[in-house]
Design a protein around this nucleic acid. Structure first.
Lengths: 304, 304
DNA sequence: CCTGCTCAATAAGATATGCTAATGGAGGCG
DNA sequence: CGCCTCCATTAGCATATCTTATTGAGCAGG
């Protein structure tokens, strides 16, 4: 295969018809160019130029091939320009794994900010089970993950962002709302809805139910907080929803109402994670900061 | 500018995700590939791959750039394929200069033969004044010329092909046709039409007119033999037309008739010329041979 | 006809590049 | 805990590539 330099020489010489001039244009000397041209012609097994008294003249074959040579160096130039552009500021597609318990309600605003700051950056959001996404992150199938703690992966950079209150919601007509003050005993024997058991949310909910003496509705595992809210609203049971979801457009308190014990202090902690070896590790840290800022803007959340 | 090899490495590694495998596929060892990859990343100023435990994983930037790298090596491959094809048998465009006094009546058949023999060869015929074309040939602006002798250019390979009778034609109703036998005196005072004075034809015609005591119509200089024939047919004067033209489809003897002295023996000699330094010099010699053969097939012409 | 000019080819040597072989080091897995 | 996989690093060597200096061919002008 010819060298890129040889392609450049071919094209430049076709333009100038003069070895010395072409050599100068490429920043080398005439003998070097002469040798490279010969090497190219030898490699191709044909004569590209004819040596006429006035200089170099394309052969018929050369006339046909020069267009192809041009497109090679054009492609190389395009590549280099794209690389320069990418190197100047982050660009490309970041594969972002999020838990469905947080992503849809917080990330749209984050994406908007990122898009303004890095127009060439694209975020591919993929929702999934946090533990599975941690593995995918470690394996390089995702670039960054936003999920509740704990995050297990070995060799991952885990950046805790904020902790978010978990709220107990009940149907609007639930007797719980009749009392002005609630205690743990009021929840004894009640049934809570939950998400897919592989979510960390599930384990946390079970712990909470233990404390309250409540039980988990095992027949149903939702796939989204919206689904849980719908179920609660229709009287199937109680649920625990994160603060940011309730404050979001999707959440709200139209279908359900908050009903908690007076000493209620359950939280969940959210964190971002990425591979510290990643090329864009700095950028991911910045994204994490943006997420934390955005979350705190929406609710007075505590840092961890 | 990155090396072509580096582009190949980039693409191959993006496909395999494994240095050893990619190196094997490219016929080199793993360290060489590792070094080249580093050199490429350094040159671009960005990380294309992320080193994860399982192997190499594209960074977001790398994912964006790999398509460009692919198109570079695709262009290079296309070029090499085209060059191989051209090297296998003559191809390209041969710029062929011809005199309008011979080209249109002889070359179509030659082109047909060449096209059968070398399907990838294209002939660009350019008509023009022979002396100008000789200069263009020497300067490398034409690859081959077919014209009447003499051909002046220095350092040109001139290959005489055949000599062709020149015929005197007169209008059908000209008194010349009444006689069974003509002598030079019959043409004294008659007027001959001619082509552009820069054609060698013009000088030869003036010589002939001198011998016959005839004169040249100086008001009109045709640009083609067809035009001359038309003029003669309409009674403007006499003309001299080459044998091959008269025998061609365009020529024929519908509008004019031959009227010559009994001892008439005027000829013109045609030759092909090219630069002996040309890459396709052998091919041009072959073309010259084809032209000579074709001409002799049409009329019993003498070799020179 | 000789001389000078232009332009390409060649020679020789310095340098840079690209490769291999051998080794080191980090992380995963039984 | 040791082995295995995979990438990085190093040293050494072959070759490619460039530079300077020189030669050679063709043309123009005196």
């Amino acid at each position: 295969m010819p060298t890129l330099r040889q392609f450049e020489i071919f094209v430049k010489l076709a333009e100038t018809g003069n070895m010395g001039e072409a050599a100068g244009g490429l920043g080398l000397t005439q003998p070097a160019l002469s040798q490279q041209l010969r090497a190219l012609e030898d490699r191709l097994g044909l004569r590209l130029f004819e040596r006429v008294p006035k200089g170099m003249q394309l052969t018929p074959a050369g006339r046909d091939l020069v267009a192809g040579a041009r497109s090679v160096i054009a492609a190389a130039r395009d590549f280099r320009d794209a690389a320069d552009h990418v190197a100047a500021k982050p660009a490309g597609s970041i594969r972002f794994g999020v838990s469905p318990t947080i992503g849809p309600y917080l990330l749209p605003a984050v994406i908007k900010i990122l898009h303004e700051r890095y127009p060439d950056l694209r975020l591919f959001m993929r929702e999934g089970i946090p533990t599975a996404q941690h593995a995918a992150l470690a394996a390089g199938e995702l670039d960054m993950v936003l999920s509740p703690l704990p995050i297990a992966g070995r060799g991952l950079q885990v950046e805790p962002l904020f902790r978010e209150p978990l709220r107990i919601v009940a149907p609007p007509d639930d007797p719980l709302h009749d009392k002005t003050s609630l205690v743990h005993e009021d929840f004894r024997g009640r049934t809570f809805l939950t998400l897919d058991h592989r979510h960390h949310y599930h384990r946390q909910l079970m712990d909470i139910c233990d404390k309250l003496g409540a039980s988990v509705l095992s027949d149903y595992e939702g796939t989204s907080l919206d689904a849980l809210q719908q179920m609660v609203g229709s009287g199937v049971g109680l649920a625990i929803l994160p603060e940011l979801y309730i404050r979001s457009d999707a959440g709200g308190l139209d279908m359900v109402r908050i009903a908690e014990p007076d000493d209620w202090t359950e939280y969940r902690s959210l964190a971002a994670a990425w591979r510290p070896s990643a090329a864009y590790a700095d950028l991911y840290a910045e994204v994490a900061q943006i997420i934390a800022d955005e979350a705190r803007k929406r609710a007075r959340l505590q840092l961890i």
